[in-house]
Design a protein around this nucleic acid. Structure first.
Lengths: 338, 338
DNA sequence: CTGAAAGCGCTTACAG
DNA sequence: CTGAAAGCGCTTACAG
């Protein structure tokens, strides 16, 4: 195989020292503009690429961010949110040659272990923290390790770590006011994992708006986000003596499962039951009827989070950033109750 | 922050040279068993972790495998297959402290560029090649680079690269014989992206079995795997003068879309139309009726592929490996035509 | 079985 | 503006 081209090779060919070449390549002061151009051209010609290990070892960055997903693989794969978030992150990381390390783990304890190892091995320059919980045990660990981190979530509850959040509270207000305007008076919510901050924020908003609007009846039932539980809860709700006329689901796959259950039970959507999904995706478009959904731009969210982590590493002060608020996409699954 | 513990610190405390400590830590000969135990205990106590950059720079491995996904993020996120595959890969990589680098790109050209860069930077020790195509342009590049790679696919068409494959041909035979036994004589197939090897193998098997069984009519229509196209093709098929009595879909999301279209058009499943999904997932279980599917263990598949790549790096000879064949999971979406 | 030393390919003060 | 040198934290021949 052709030998790898190192900085020494470039320096030799250029008639310069390795140091000078390094300065030229990294846009550092210390070389004249003409020299820099010459070196850059030469490096390109010779097919030089920085050895990431050497770069990392000599004090520069590892050139990688880490993302740990602590959910069962079966659930992860099915939620379009994650891949969109990831591809958004990568689009923002590309310009700075930063790679993404991905790890799927069963729980928070394993996740924390991964952070410790990654940081001890200097595998990553920073990490993204996802699915923020109240009293999240991961936050103090990251703070103590001083591992640069950006929290995907909030507001608040992430200690001194910076975070990017989407306003779930006002999105829920929007959802409820929309359903109330359609004259729904009995609304159920099939919620996500209790303890997760966005779940709790939505629950609080749901309850408080339900009270303010003077609904006849409202309830939140928690799930693990899986379509199985979504289906099961829907079945229970629709079997009750006085079923809801509208159900709000905390993700898209549970909403799709809800539609199936309605079909199965002979409940017409939206004539007998309005269904709303949280997080829009093609899944919402392929069901019959297509689902009204709370839509957020997950790719842009990912890009924003990654950009902020890069900014943090560049010494900028980043605390808490609010993403653009979600929109309501009205499709065929919601209507005035019959 | 507390200073990082290096091998020199451990050596000093142990009263040994750095070399001796390195031998002890890596299970190399050159130290007595008692010394090795003492060093290991000390390293653990002191919280020593190998610096991945230093390790990689001194000739050892980068400690990472790369996976590039060249599909639109919108499609990726929705197919449970990928996350299962990824989590399977990681489970096999965990024991050897190997991380997974993930990159999402728009096309093969970008994917090839990523391989070149990763290898030039020595970011990875090897890569997984996914979605193998006929005359795949990525194969000769990886061969030329001598970048260790395991192909997720086959049989054949991956040059000198080793691959792990699942027998799609006999799975298709199984599917067709099952449908024929139910007395289906008009079978359509909503296929994946043409050019992808598994798509083509399935198409060939579909055509040849259709001929052998003497079906009245059969057809394959290609798609991009998206639910939109799955829905669109289904609509067209069901609108024809003599519609099929059974449709086989090349993935799960298109099959789910197909069920929605059937509902929408008043076509009863399975009374009027049998539907089969390829790749089983919770998606298949949540529709009404639940979908009969070709099921393969994607997590085990990923684990197998990763284990083989590790074996390859350890100098073992790996050529072509066949995974356990897929099973047919019969649920409510298939029946004898009315 | 153990120690001293060179080297991996970069970056970065430090002199000139 | 440029050169020579040390150092990052490991691994691995090479002597003893």
């Amino acid at each position: 195989m052709t030998k790898r081209v190192t900085i020494a090779d470039v320096a030799k060919k250029a008639g310069l020292s390795k140091g000078a070449v390094s300065y030229a390549l990294n846009g550092q002061p210390g070389v004249s503009e003409t020299t820099r151009q010459r070196v850059l051209r030469l490096a390109l010609e010779m097919g030089w690429h920085p050895n990431s290990a050497a770069k990392a070892l000599s004090g520069a960055r590892a050139g990688a961010f880490g993302l740990v997903l602590a959910r069962p693989a079966s659930t992860l794969g099915i939620e379009p949110f994650f891949m969109k978030l990831i591809s958004g992150m990568e689009s923002a990381m590309a310009s700075s040659q930063t790679a993404l390390l991905l790890q799927v783990v069963p729980d928070h304890a394993a996740e924390i272990a991964v952070y410790r190892r990654w940081w001890a091995e200097r595998r990553v320059d920073g990490v993204f923290l996802i699915d923020l919980c109240r009293d999240d045990p991961r936050v103090p660990v990251l703070e103590e390790l001083r591992l640069p981190a950006m929290v995907v979530g909030g507001p608040g509850h992430h200690g001194a770590l910076p975070g990017v959040w989407i306003d779930d509270t006002s999105a829920m207000v929007m959802v409820m006011e929309y359903l109330a305007a359609l004259r729904h008076r009995r609304i159920a919510r099939v919620g996500g994992v209790p303890g997760m901050l966005h779940t709790e924020l939505r629950t609080e908003a749901f309850d408080s708006v339900a009270g303010r609007l003077g609904l006849e009846w409202s309830v939140t039932i928690s799930t693990d986000y899986s379509p199985e539980q979504g289906a099961q809860v829907t079945r229970r709700l629709l079997s009750s003596a006085a079923p809801p006329t509208a159900i709000v689901y905390d993700n898209d796959v549970m909403a799709v499962a809800g539609v199936s259950v309605a079909h199965e039970m002979g409940v017409r959507v939206p004539a007998d039951l309005s269904i709303m999904a949280w997080d829009d995706s093609v899944l919402c478009e392929i069901t019959h009827p297509p689902l009204t959904a709370v839509s957020r731009d997950s790719t842009a969210y990912g890009a924003q989070v990654a950009a902020k982590l890069l900014a943090l590493l560049n010494g900028e002060v980043v605390t808490e950033v609010e993403e653009t608020p979600p929109r309501l996409v009205v499709r065929g699954s919601t209507a005035r109750p019959g």
